[in-house]
Amino acid sequence: MMIRVQNAPFDFGQECNAFAQAQGNIGAIVSFCGIVRNNDTGTLHRMEIEHYPGMTERALDKIAQQARARWSLSDCMIIHRYGTLAPEELIMMVATASAHRASAFAAADFLMDYLKSRAPFWKKEITEQGAEWVAAKDSDEDALSRW
C-alpha cells in the first residue's frame, strides 16, 4: 500500500503501470485521477492546495485501511499533491487492485468520497478577480452516508 503526499508532479501512466506490475495474481485494477479544472470563463490562474502535514498522511492511511478492511483488495495506492498547481495539472490519483472488478470499483469510489471530506486539504482558486477558498459541498458530506 503506497501513500504519497507531495508537491512534485507525477506521471499518471507511469504510476498506473508500476502499480500494475507490482501486483501478483489479480484480475482488475481501477484508477482515478483528479485534474485542476479551469472555471467556465477560463480565468483560473492557479490553484493553491494547503494541507496539514502529519495529519494528512494519517488520514489517508486510515482511509486506505478502511477500504482494505471492507473489500478484498490485494493493494491500493494514493498520491495527493499540495502547493501551487496550474490548470490541467494532475492533483491526485488513487488505484485499487483486486481479483474482480466490483471490489476494485467500489473501493476506488469509497477512497474518493472519503478523500474529499476527511483528508485535511484545502483548495484556493486564484483568478483575475482575486483569490477564493473552495467551499466544501453538502453533497460531498452526504456522499459518505452511502458507505
Binding site: I91, M112, L115, K116, V134
Partner: peptide, 10 residues
C-alpha cells in the same frame, strides 16, 4: 489542537 474549515481534498 487544529482548527480548519471543512476539507476539500480529492
Amino acid at each position: 489542537i487544529a482548527f480548519f474549515p471543512p476539507m476539500t481534498g480529492g
